[in-house]
Amino acid sequence: MRFDVYTPLLVSLLLPLVSPVIGRRVAPALAARVLASAAVLTAAAATWSLVLLATALLGDAPPLIREAHQDGRPLADPVPEVIGVAACVALAVVVRRVRRAVRTERRTRRTLRRLCEGHPRDTELVVAASQVPQAFAIPGRPGRILVTSAMLGALAPAERRVLLAHERAHLRHRHGQLVTAVTLAAAANPLLGPVRSAVIFLVERWADEQAATEVGDRGTTARALARAALSAGPGCALNFAERAVTRRIAALQMAPPPSLWPAAAAVLALGVGAALFAADATGDLLALLSNALT
């Protein structure tokens, strides 16, 4: 309990350090999955560790102390009281941040779905008349692709195929759910913010690779990305930050990265290890409380 309970917090520091390396060396589809999975496991374990640290304050409850003294039993103090109090405060912050993130995700989904109202359910592509070049993959049942007329007008026919293939990849591989999961993980554990950024970039790279495979031309895919980025500017759903676009275009000019399963497994092991250490700390705390109550 004294050491295991802090391990998920240590993993929360390690995961952001390894995520850029994994993002560069491992195929984006695999890297995005393992980083998101490790982030969710680590966030859950870290949150549970806070619960354990807060629960340790029960050992200071007057009835337990009085009963232990009457029976002549030593009462172990698993963590200092100040840490338990800090854990309670941190838990309150976590709950507030997660609730805010959930509300934001729901509000964004509702806004995007409203943009597609009035179209038949079997309509995949929705073209909105707008002078602002934008493109969105809207998850749901059914999933929709929303593209503005300005975006379509900025692209050549072959580049439009790339754009649609990119957005279809987001829908087909449920990238929205992946990003939502890692967003909630980062809300619960702010230390995982860099991992969220890495996963968002990787799902875009994943969709780029899928589009390049579908159209059969990495050069055309890179040109479509560059032209769409120049037209859309910051804030588009395609993640057109200047540095991100430069990296994505550079990646399309090289061979796809390999699926390095050992490296991916090592990252996933970090998240699994955090969960196992949290489970071990749970057993230790239960044993301490059981000794105090019997």
Rank of each mutant, 00 (worst) to 15 (best):
A265Q: 02
A56R: 03
R196M: 06
A241M: 05
A250W: 09
R144L: 04
G176H: 09
N291L: 15
A263Q: 11
R33W: 09
D208F: 08
P16G: 05
R97P: 00
A61V: 01
H170E: 08
L146H: 05
A244I: 01
G72S: 12
P120N: 03
T148G: 03
S37C: 12
A31D: 03
R100T: 13
T246E: 15
H119D: 08
P157A: 10
L270K: 11
A274G: 07
I65N: 04
P80V: 01
T47N: 09
P133H: 07
D4G: 14
A135K: 04
P190L: 14
R110F: 12
L230I: 02
P133D: 04
D280K: 15
L30Q: 05
L57C: 01
D4H: 15
R172S: 11
A181C: 02
L17R: 09
A43E: 03
P8E: 06
H175Y: 06
E204I: 02
A46E: 12
P8S: 11
Q210N: 13
T246L: 15
A188Q: 06
T246F: 12
H119L: 10
L164W: 10
V195G: 05
A56K: 04
R73V: 07
A56P: 00
C236H: 01
A101V: 02
F277P: 00
V127P: 00
L52P: 00
G216N: 06
Q177L: 14
L58N: 02
R109T: 08
S130G: 01
A86K: 07
V98Q: 13
L58K: 02
T42R: 05
R109E: 15
A251E: 13
V203C: 04
E214R: 12
H69I: 12
T55C: 09
L91D: 04
H170L: 07
P63H: 12
G219D: 13
A135E: 03
R114I: 00
R114W: 10
A87F: 09
G23Q: 08
A92M: 14
L270R: 09
A226V: 05
A279G: 09
S19K: 11
R97C: 01
L17S: 05
A292I: 02
R174E: 14
A292C: 04
R100K: 14
R172Y: 07
G84N: 07
V21R: 14
S290G: 10
